[in-house]
């Protein structure tokens, strides 16, 4: 699904990722853990194609195609989704309108018929129930006046609606209380399937208690220094990152 080979990348002439390799197969859930400044955000930004990041060496391949020259919307339409660490506020832009536009852009790209307002409403109401969200959400502007928890829930709602094949969850657990965390984890777990892959980027092991990763990677100074099973996350929680630094 996602194959990253010896990736060297950075921003403003500063190299942040220094030879990172990662391979995620369909159906797998990988977690990348690391401290602030280890390169976690750069990794998610480079995969999704954010402006301003450069790649000096290596490649990012998605479904066997190099995507590093693709604009971000092309990657999104191809099935790549990111739940943002800091979801962006869009004053005046209605959630319903926003999500319907996104979904229809994708359906159009896939050669499917675009959904009309009634069809979309039916779909979105099901998803809202799944995440225990109120229908008043539909009238509100995108992330405008949302609490931290509401914003993260909105990200997961968008994921469930857009049905991506590869989802990057960037610090999705931050700012969530335990109830919200469980609801979101439930949503993600239900969404897991043999065709869908996940890359969970996180600082803490908290979220991983509820969504069990197949593989855990430790990112230090732009490189993956160790990979292992879910027990690696628990070990990190106990010992911290220090023992892995050379």
């Amino acid at each position: 699904m996602l194959d990253i080979q010896d990736l060297h990348a950075g921003v403003d002439n500063k190299e942040i990722l220094k030879g990172l390799s990662l391979n995620i197969k369909p159906g797998e859930m990988h977690a990348v853990m690391g401290r602030n400044g280890s390169g976690k955000s750069t990794l998610s930004n480079v995969i999704t194609g954010r402006e301003g990041y450069y790649i000096s060496k290596g490649d990012v391949r998605y479904k066997n195609e190099s995507i590093i020259e693709w604009p971000p919307e092309q990657r999104a339409l191809a099935g790549l989704f990111m739940s943002f660490q800091y979801p962006v506020v869009m004053p005046g832009v209605n959630n319903t309108y926003f999500l319907k536009s996104a979904l229809n852009a994708k359906r159009k790209h896939n050669g499917e018929k675009e959904l009309d307002a009634a069809g979309f409403l039916k779909l979105i109401k099901e998803k809202l129930t799944e995440l225990d969200m109120d229908t008043s959400y539909l009238q509100r502007a995108v992330n405008d006046g949302f609490s931290g928890g509401e914003k993260k829930r909105n990200e997961v709602l968008q994921m469930l609606t857009l049905e991506p094949e590869l989802s990057i969850l960037d610090e999705t657990d931050s700012g969530l209380d335990i109830d919200a965390l469980k609801i979101i984890a439930d949503g993600v777990n239900k969404y897991r399937s043999p065709e869908r892959s996940f890359l969970v980027i996180t600082h803490y092991q908290r979220l991983l208690k509820y969504i069990e990763p197949d593989v855990v990677h430790v990112l230090i100074d732009g490189k993956i220094v160790r990979s292992g099973g879910k027990e690696l996350a628990i070990e990190l929680e106990e010992k911290g990152y220090g023992w892995l630094e050379s």
Partner: peptide
């Protein structure tokens, strides 16, 4: 970028 990442 937020919109782009959603395919818009």
């Amino acid at each position: 970028f937020y919109c782009n990442q959603r395919g818009i």
